[in-house]
Design a protein around this nucleic acid. Structure first.
Lengths: 376, 376
DNA sequence: CTGAAAGCGCTAACAC
DNA sequence: GTGTTAGCGCTTTCAG
């Protein structure tokens, strides 16, 4: 038997379909063929009867090819379904048009929306994305990860991991060894580092002021875990806004949660004990606010009459909580977009041998007033 | 002035910090230096006084190097912070250890959890991930996208876009031209195609049977958009389960939503009109179920006494709806993991010149009973 | 055990 | 306009 043409491989497919709750299944095989090889520039050149250089010129839209040759080559390219190898190009051009993206907690609402912003802007700017998702926010040794990205020749890095604990400790030591621009999301501004963050402090002020303006004077707070920079910002805004209004915010008036609905429930119960006069509460995210609404309802408290509730994040379902949740809106998508824009700007600058300037961007927030704070 | 050493570039960083709601900002500049170049195998070889091949042997843990030479080279590698170029390796080895991942609707709950599963399994199996996110579920021309992935030499592709409309129309025409294994998520089984999906039909049966067992006889349904395969499966399960129980499910008994909470509200209002006897409802996802709870509450209906509600997806907040939502749980994370395992299995097989077999995997679901269906 | 030569797919720099 | 040469960073083959 003649050996198979190496450019094809034959596959036999087996289908196994389980029926629900039974062990029945049926099997079906069918051979199908797959082309095994991408076309190379050499093959195209040979087929068109020119040198690889000329093909390269056509691919890159260089002017110095006769229109006759160009057309012939383009024809061949179409026929052979040829696409130049991005890898080989990256090697020779010392530019990959690829961004490394490092995320954490992709399963949560915020990070994935941010990633969505990153993908859309990267697509727009024609950059490919190499994705790494950290298993924990407070990651151990990030050096191997950085080296991995660099070994893939990424042109820049978007560090889309929020600042938690001292998970930025490596920045000062290692960042200067990273040979490409890096932009950080959601972290405290630092000299010499580009960051893009939401203005959590301003958002916290909006929320707290809103409750003050409604005449509430016993305003509690459920914070996020305080090793999160964002949680500290929101809490600080609550505290300082109350102080400016001449109201003391003591330790009886707030409890630390961990962002989850279940932690919100526990925190709220605690707060009801320590601060029975409480007539309003600013909760550091909508998930926890949801369980506050839930628990209040169960306890016979009427929101907002007995307790006004304001959340943070404005996640898609908040408008359908019962009652609909007043919350602070901010734009995760925009966050990702801006980060990509910034890192690409720096890449371009480096490429033109210009010096680059780091920028700290703070995105604004807005209050979305719904039924959980205003009595109808 | 002496020209700068080409292996360094100097950057001046400018920090701009906006104060909330004021136009104040301050600027700070500081020059910092970044190393410009990754070390190459050549430089390592030179520094260690050996040839590049010997370094290569050390990198790849080949046995045939004297332990003396090996140690010296490893020392140099550490000092120079050298990592081999994944690009160059991919080129020569004709293997990139990179998977192309195509998603859609990353901003939604399900797809991002699935991506999380993909990242964690890819990490475990030491594959890098090239991410593309489609702006729409029902995508126009996917050929350029596939070509783009192939031009990046991905070893396999995970198509994590749910089957919507005829967005699988290209499969029969184009798939055999794709020179690497492809695994599809969330789609109807087809001959010759590997798929991994959740058993939506079985889940729908669980939900409907549960309501029947509670003695409900007027069970409505709010479906997802019926151009979605998943939505059709869930609806069909509802319909057929009722029929098997001797109950007719006519067009008065269901309305089509679009997965969003707002569509769920509208659909529910409609259903209340067309089917006033309704004493239970199976809603095709938790978001829409949320607005059903919300609307029922507003209308003075008591859940579950007047209306038992079952959702689908078990998203993290469902336990904190009011009342807590009974729903069908399935594992988005697992979905991503299985897809990566499957595609890597096929890649390995191709690499060993074995024939590969396609498999249809259906992940099971389970009912999570909470307060929205069972009267206490 | 180690090194020299060739080449993965492509493009920059130069020739003609 | 077009082809030739060299080389991006690495590994494979083969010679010593």
């Amino acid at each position: 038997m003649k050996p198979l043409d190496k450019s094809f491989w034959i596959c036999y497919y087996v289908i196994v379909i389980g029926n629900d709750n039974k062990n029945d299944f049926f099997v079906q095989t069918r051979p199908i063929m797959k082309m095994n090889k991408r076309a190379t520039i050499k093959q195209v050149a040979k087929a068109a009867g020119v040198s690889t250089q000329t093909v390269s010129r056509v691919i890159n839209n260089r002017p110095d090819v006769s229109s006759e040759t160009r057309e012939r080559i383009q024809q061949v390219i179409l026929e052979m379904d040829y696409r130049p190898s991005a890898l080989a190009r990256s090697l020779i051009q010392q530019r990959s048009f690829t961004l490394g993206v490092v995320t954490a907690g992709l399963k949560y609402f915020g990070p994935s929306r941010t990633l969505n912003g990153i993908t859309s802007m990267a697509e727009e700017l024609k950059y490919a994305l190499l994705l790494e998702d950290l298993p924990h926010f407070d990651s151990e040794d990030i050096k191997p990860l950085l080296q991995d990205l660099i070994s893939h020749h990424v042109d820049g890095i978007v560090w889309a991991v929020p600042e938690v604990g001292d998970n930025r400790r490596w920045v000062d030591e290692i960042l200067m060894d990273v040979p490409v621009p890096v932009v950080f999301l959601t972290m405290q501004a630092r000299a010499g580092v580009s960051t893009v963050s939401v203005d959590n402090y301003a958002g916290g002020v909006l929320a707290t002021r809103h409750l003050l303006e409604l005449g509430r004077r016993h305003i509690g707070h459920i914070s996020g875990p305080l090793d999160w920079w964002e949680a500290r910002q929101r809490k600080q805004a609550w505290q300082e806004t109350l102080q400016k209004a001449g109201i003391r915010a003591t330790d009886n008036h707030w409890v630390e949660g961990n962002w989850s609905s279940s932690s919100g429930e526990i925190a709220f119960e605690q707060l009801l004990q320590s601060n029975p006069e409480m007539d309003a509460i600013f909760v550091a995210n909508d998930q926890m606010a949801l369980s506050v609404l839930h628990t209040a309802c169960r306890r016979g408290l009427v929101v907002p009459r007995d307790l006004a509730v304001v959340g943070f994040d404005n996640f898609a379902e908040s408008a359908y909580f019962w009652p609909a949740l007043t919350t602070v809106n901010h734009n995760h998508h925009e966050l990702g977009c801006r980060a990509v824009q910034e890192v690409v700007k720096q890449i371009e600058a480096v490429h033109r041998n210009e010096r680059i300037e780091s920028q700290t961007v703070l995105l604004s927030t807005e209050l979305v007033v719904r039924d959980s704070s205003i009595c109808k």
